[in-house]
Design a protein around this nucleic acid. Structure first.
Lengths: 191, 191, 191, 191
DNA sequence: TATGAATGAGTCTTCATTCAT
DNA sequence: AATGAATGAAGACTCATTCAT
């Protein structure tokens, strides 16, 4: 067998790492972090327990990477220009994207909500999370303010809470929850 | 012949059981079920590990009693007459009560949401939960239907989801979340 | 209620003690000593756990009393005169009595055999047991010796072993083991 | 890719498993199943508690493997041809083998008798045991029947019971029990 | 890189025993 | 004499992590 180039090795590493992250996310979401043994992740991923420690320092750091990369993904499509307000059309697109993400990343949302509910675990991510989310609330608040809303800040928080609730209900009952119709209602009521 | 009457024993039992349930709810809510050892519950409750098993068959049955009694409590104020629709005023009162409960039972909500997110645990409660909650969705759907809403079923689910989301956000940040103002907005937008 | 006389109290004590001993024997025999909790004995006897400690110092001393009184009972019908040999008729009667005891005290035999098999437990009773049983082997040996047997000592031990084996098999399968016919064979072959 | 071949891993596993089984048999026999903690087996075997669970699902399944393999071993030398009777010489050899096994496998017999005496434990093995032992009783019964015995079935059961009793007594007192002489007597009296 | 045997701390649970009443 | 709540030590079992190969 010819020796592999450094690039090939890197590709293998990244692929394996991806498989582990993917498997762990699926299991953490379904069973919870503390109820998911490393041995189960290894078995489901078709590798040995030991190998996981080749890629991650600990079970906790595996969780950390899952959450970090998931949070980056969440905001990746939601870029905005510093200092400028958000337009109605941009907001509509934001809602559309959010509903799509709920559907496509439901496993991540499930895990993420679980963690938010456990303050002693979530505190690790709190700062990173707030950094990413606060600017959006500010934008939204300004939008409602300009529209002449009575409680622009409350409305912005309500906007976020309603999206969270929709995500939660979709996760709990993906087959019966009328996501599309609710999207229509959401756009009418919040924009 | 016995130096303590049966009633005295019962009172002692009920008091101690209450303390254990209360302590366990607080810990399960904050740390999660699987991340809360029985030994910690015992320590916080100021009793020995063994005593918990005098009152509950297992850690799971302790959880079960917490959830059961919490669910009963949730619907206790929300009685309605079979076969009759719900009026606008009743709905307003329902929302008021719900917001109060969010504030007062936030620990229970925290635990409850956590469990909903873990299907393999929640399946134990699923049936009981659906029995208690489905009639309300039916009532709500009928209310929106009579009001001439476009998607009455979706709106009813949206109503529930929004309340859930509000609860979730209040739990995550009870000190900064503008619950009162959001209640005003909620009533305007959903009733 | 008139005060009870000392004798009445004693009778009550003895009755309760008897019930406990009886219940414990039944459970120890069926489930084994280490697999039988005191709480189960109390429940089956219809009394409280604490009361057992009113009559017995510990679980072990309860066992000790069961075995002691059982062993006394075993040899009670088998008295013999010191210094005189045993006659053929006496031996026949001894076998008859033994077969009867196997049937009537099968629970005690079950427990007793169990203990013999666990040297670390049985050592407590070993001395008492040997004191009671050795004289019989001596008698039996003399009997076979006088009959001109080749190996009188071995035959005496064989006699005892065969009785034990019959007891063991009867215990294991009381409904199908042909005790009566085997008694006939035993008398033919060993006397 | 793996630095140990599958065969190497298997050899390691089998060796370690054998050590655990051997140690557990010795302890279960001497102290009884319920009076032998896993921690003691681990200590005696020179390994950690946890490792035992790498090889056996539970304490019960460890017992099960001991009994299964012991029972297989017991009958391994006692093969017979289906449909044909047993000859006098074969029976003599059977007795010789049995006496040898009593001496060599006394630990297993000790454990096995203990279990027979506890119906709630033994029921697990009952079926397997009867499957292996019943054919032999049938053979023996036929042998005695052809010899013109009065109670061939009872005599066959007596044969088995006597062997059991001999085993029991040898176990209880291996140093003083005259096994060889009793074998001579057994052959004279039962064949 | 990859394996899985091995460890040991920690988890749930049981149970003999004590004690206030 | 009698109860059963309470304790604490110990038992079965799990699992994150290490390490020799």
């Amino acid at each position: 067998m010819s020796p592999r180039t450094s690039d090939q090795w890197n590709r293998i590493r990244e692929e394996k790492k991806g498989i582990i992250l993917e498997t762990a996310l699926a299991l953490f979401a379904r069973r919870g972090f503390y109820n998911t043994p490393i041995s189960l992740i290894a078995r489901e991923a078709g590798i040995s327990k030991g190998l996981i420690y080749n890629y991650f320092d600990s079970k906790e750091s595996l969780l950390y990477e899952i959450i970090s990369s998931g949070m980056n993904d969440l905001v990746s499509d939601l870029k905005y220009e510093e200092g400028r307000g958000v337009t109605r059309d941009e907001l509509i697109r934001y809602v559309e994207v959010s509903f799509t993400k709920i559907k496509e990343n439901s496993r991540f949302y499930r895990l993420f909500f679980s963690l938010i509910l456990q303050p002693e675990v979530f505190s690790i991510f709190q700062d990173k999370f707030l950094d990413q989310i606060l600017p959006w609330f500010t934008l939204l608040e300004r939008y409602y303010s300009e529209k002449g809303e009575k409680f622009p800040q409350a409305k912005a928080r309500f906007f976020g809470a309603a999206l969270d609730g929709i995500g939660l209900n979709y996760i709990a009952e993906p087959d019966h929850f009328p996501l599309e119709e609710i999207k229509t209602l959401f756009l009418e009521m919040f924009i």
